[in-house]
Design a protein around this nucleic acid. Structure first.
Lengths: 349, 349
DNA sequence: CTGAAAGCGCTAACAT
DNA sequence: ATGTTAGCGCTTTCAG
């Protein structure tokens, strides 16, 4: 049974294609009720559904958007994706999921394909991003929303959703200092990523604000995965005066630190307090539950998608579009992985 | 800068649209090299890219497939998605991600939308599925591949990828019995799901094969999430002769059991051996690492997508298409969460 | 070897 | 109030 088209509906209803089209698009203002009904009946009996492809050809819109992410496997993303999908779906948009696997060239290929398919807009949430790629999008006049990424020089219809890590990280530092910690470490993400450097710098700055100099802070580098946290543990626990508190650039590494430290006999949080960042699902479910700087991930997704929807009507206009910019907050969630430091043997008073 | 179209390319190259089309589609057999080159040059200077939408309108194919899953947040999916994407991408297909959120009606809406957008095929990996939904797909003549789902009565171009849980589960039972366990429990998934019942039945059957009657096995029900495992722990540990080994229907619940049991003071695996199912990433990274029945998730995704690609050319033909069926194996991965049971106080000898 | 023309399924002027 | 006509950007006969 092949799909009926608009002509067949018109035939069955005894009207012209235009009339059918009008009914379908609710331009039914100057129409006799009876005509409308005949069309509706024909549509029903034929099980007619308009072809989205044909519609797109004339309307230039596809009711689809692209979502560029680095890796579905990263537990940071699922909730963001849900946020995007919830809004998209509610507005009749479908989402092309594009996993770049942290590879720039794969991202480029996706952008190409998305542009060819004429998606109405693109959400970019990859941690690595080339300005060329973004420029490519802008040149094609595709509306883009960038999450946690600085504005590229490129022109175009673009919005940015910045994440205010500072507040949450400062809260974390205040919390730890308030508990009595004085010796700190940071397990950073790959420092070639801008976002890793930002987190490190904000952490060090917040500590400096509490009178702890950056030189006193042990900074290690990890891969943002559990293993990265585990690998950091020996270096963390070495030395005569090891840190009593560690801030990891994300929750996965924080978990790695916790598990790794425990395997080496450390007790938590007495021997080591650990703070993560993300507030992934797992954070609340492990034991001890993880104290972490929470990103409102669902909201990040939904706000980004909403912003994109706002941008769409503007894609027609040439350049002079004001850049959309929003900032989204973060905040510390205190759970069981942080506590007062045990008085160190060497510093009893 | 508005996208150039084929007419402009033809103009610049000084040829007809047909010729441009021929070059683009590599029907270049009877063509003078010089003509071809002129077209290529024009394409390059204009930065021309053919409109996928227009192509789809005539070709009836969109180079896109739909992927129905229950929830991106479930750690079972990411690797499956990767498997699908790797193959899809390599063949020039894009993937519409459709998260049903375990809701049937959302699945129906997606199917509708996918059909309207004329995707070339659909992969169904949701744990709940209505036969109506599948019938809907089949009626629309859309090729479908079903993962771990029995064949519906409906006709159509359909393939199924079954998962042979039996082998892996039997291996798990053999492993546990071999270690000396005699008292077992199972934390099942929601028993209204077919797949939950299957796992339970296979577990009980395998135990029966080793001389342990189903009545002796404590069966609890969970929600397939970490909390589900945690909640089961009190019931698990109660009674004078608690089980020494538990098989959870998935890894998340297994982790919940482990963590919950540990919080109640149990030692693992001495007091309790735990086996999961899935082999999610996390399974190898927690401590103790989880012994689990591994599903080859990447392979599940890639095999399913390959099967769908095989099905596509057949979508033209009416019915008499042989049903594609494949089975994919599972196997036990032994890690640290299982061990010999400690002699029980009450049964010292 | 290449061009002209028709048509995919729909919407949007422009009639009437 | 509804029908007619002309595309949207491409592929594909069918002619040359």
């Amino acid at each position: 049974m092949t799909r009926a088209n608009i002509a067949e509906v018109a035939l069955v209803a005894g009207v012209s294609k235009s009339t059918v089209s009008r009914v379908l698009n609710e331009r039914t203002e100057y129409m006799r009720d009876e005509t409308r009904q005949r069309v509706l009946d024909a549509v029903a009996t034929l099980g007619y559904r308009p072809s989205a492809v044909a519609r797109s050809l004339v309307s230039k819109r596809t009711q689809a958007v692209g979502l560029l992410i680095s890796d579905v496997g990263n537990p940071y993303y699922p909730e963001v994706i849900h946020g995007v999908e919830d809004i998209a779906l509610a507005h009749g948009y479908d989402v092309f999921l594009c996993n770049t696997n942290y590879k720039l060239e794969r991202g480029m290929a996706f952008v190409q394909s998305l542009a060819d398919k004429q998606v109405d807009g693109v959400l970019v949430m990859t941690s690595r991003m080339s300005d060329d790629l973004l420029a490519g999008l802008a040149e094609r006049g595709l509306p883009v929303v960038l999450i946690d990424w600085e504005l590229p020089a490129a022109q175009g219809v673009v919005g940015t959703l910045a994440i205010d890590f500072e507040t949450g990280i400062r809260e974390a530092v205040d919390h730890l200092v308030g508990l009595g910690h004085r010796r700190f470490a940071h397990v950073a993400g790959p420092l070639n990523l801008r976002t890793s450097r930002t987190r490190r710098d904000l952490f060090l700055a917040a500590l400096a604000g509490r009178g702890i100099a950056p030189e006193q802070v042990l900074v290690l580098e990890g891969d943002l995965r559990i293993q990265g946290g585990r690998h950091a543990v020996p270096a963390l626990l070495a030395g005569p005066e090891p840190p009593t508190a560690v801030f990891a650039a994300n929750d996965l590494m924080a978990l790695g630190v916790i598990w790794g430290a425990r395997e080496l006999g450390a007790r938590l949080p007495e021997d080591l307090s650990v703070v993560g960042l993300d507030d992934i699902q797992l954070a609340a479910e492990v034991s001890p539950p993880l104290t972490t700087v929470a990103l409102p991930r669902h909201e990040i997704g939904s706000r980004a998608m909403r912003m994109l929807l706002d941008l769409l009507p503007l894609s027609a206009k040439p350049q002079a579009v004001p850049i959309f910019q929003e900032v989204i907050g973060t905040q510390l969630v205190v759970r069981g992985s942080t506590g007062r430091p045990k008085a160190h043997p060497g510093e009893g008073r």
